[in-house]
Design a protein around this nucleic acid. Structure first.
Length: 384
RNA sequence: GUGGAUGUAGUUCAACAGUAGAACGCCAGGUUGUGGACCUGGAGGUCGCGGGGGCAGCACCCGUCUUCCACC
């Protein structure tokens, strides 16, 4: 059923949720990551237990990402880091855990040594395991082989990932690499029971995006749109450029995107599948989704912080308009307390609610589309 | 009653006599194919009260009150 949202279970688990929870929530596909599962426990182990779905006791469809995104998050993004100075300051938007500290602070030298950026060459990427620092190699051949062993129903071609800060020439070079890797990925793919997504890149450049969309649709039975976006406007523009080139009969997946507003816009532009870490990450970090009826707006990203003092004695559920198990059973005051106390149930209840919230939103969107009232629903939520 | 401590941000505590900081709490923001149960920022203090010496005090001296401990 499309459009739909796939929760992300990087390490063969949607953090804090069991596969039974996912069934209750109504999730359809779970996405895991080749990079993480390769490092631990290793694709051999997963294969031995009958593949990803069987290993995690999930009977629904599964999907694995190729590890291409990690080429970015562990490589490209790290190189873009510039020193800003000042203790404990966050550097670039795209570097996740890199900080600058005073040179004399010894504690940091250690943490700075942790950052060994991945090196990208024409054939693949060399990187260092975040678990034990060991040198690793990932390329189209090995990524596809791993994904065949992991055995997901949907897999992704190994792609290179441009930095959104790059200019035209650098982005073009990266796209050419992605295309070359795409063909290698197809060539390496032996299993016939897995559908492979090709990934569209080209950054913020219209002609690159269009040629990439055309190329991908030509070669693959499923199309995914990749990249990192510095603003929602750019994301939406990229969709306008690329989607028209994609065969309606083939699945269209927008990688990594999943905020409420983005879902509405992207569905309208023709996207079928989404995946995003947002519901679970936000849940772990104490923010929960609320619908317009409960105060959700594009301004607050349809979310509130459960840790805020205002919820200490709030008898309402996270979202009064939500019907999830968490909302049917627990008050904001209780979850607020659990969160303050750093009790594990807090993360689980918030994650459960958030994933349900997004999956349910997609359910409502599907119904609205069938009944021809998608525009009204969209207006109700994001006001346009 | 005697002796000894104590009094600094909402809380617990720092601050060689040079014009007050941290942690937690509070508030806000961030997080988009998960190296994140994470990160960033902000508000908030007549340093118990009154004197004194000193260029200068939260810090020294005197008094006073608070709270606590020990002894009688």
């Amino acid at each position: 059923l499309t459009p739909n949202f796939n929760p992300v279970g990087t390490q063969a688990t949607v953090k804090t949720l069991s596969s039974q929870d996912l069934v209750e929530i109504g999730a359809q596909i779970v996405l895991a990551n080749t990079y993480h599962l390769h490092l631990r426990p290793g694709e051999k182990v997963v294969k031995k237990f009958g593949g990803l779905g069987s290993f995690m006791s999930w009977s629904g469809p599964t999907m694995t990402d190729s590890g291409g995104f990690q080429v970015f998050s562990l490589g490209t993004a790290q190189k873009k880091v510039t020193t800003v100075g000042g203790k404990g300051q966050k550097l670039s938007k795209f570097s996740k855990s890199v900080f600058v500290y005073e040179p004399e602070d010894e504690a940091v030298v250690i943490s700075m040594q942790k950052i060994k950026p991945a090196k990208i060459d024409e054939d693949g990427v060399t990187f260092y395991s975040h678990l034990d620092g060991s040198k690793q190699r990932l390329d189209p051949q090995s990524s596809i082989r791993m994904q065949e062993e992991l055995g997901a129903d949907l897999i992704v071609a190994f792609d290179d990932h441009e930095s959104p800060l790059w200019g035209y020439e650098e982005t073009k070079k990266s796209l050419e690499r992605t295309n070359r890797w795409a063909l290698s990925s197809l060539k390496s793919h032996k299993r016939t029971d897995q559908l492979m997504y090709g990934v569209i890149h080209g950054g913020i450049f219209e002609d690159l995006r269009k040629s990439s969309a055309h190329f991908t649709d030509q070669h693959f039975g499923a199309n995914a749109i990749g990249g990192a976006y510095t603003s929602k406007e750019i994301l939406y523009r990229v969709l306008d450029w690329t989607v028209p080139f994609l065969d309606e009969q083939k699945p269209r997946h927008l990688l990594g995107i999943g905020e409420v507003q983005d879902l509405f816009e992207a569905v309208e532009k023709g996207i079928d599948f989404f995946d995003c870490v947002s519901p679970t990450r936000r849940g772990r970090h104490g923010t929960f989704y609320v619908s317009p009826k409960s105060g959700g707006t594009t301004r607050n990203s349809f979310s509130l912080h459960i840790g805020n003092g205002q919820f200490a004695q709030d008898i309402k559920p996270l979202d009064p308009a939500c019907g999830c198990l968490s909302c049917k059973t627990y008050t904001r005051a209780y979850i607020h307390h659990l969160f303050r106390a750093k009790e594990l149930l807090a993360y689980r209840l918030a994650s459960y609610h958030n994933v349900f919230f997004i999956v349910n939103l997609m359910r409502e969107i599907r119904a609205a589309i069938l009944e021809g009232r998608f525009p009204q629903l969209k207006k109700e939520w994001i006001g346009k």
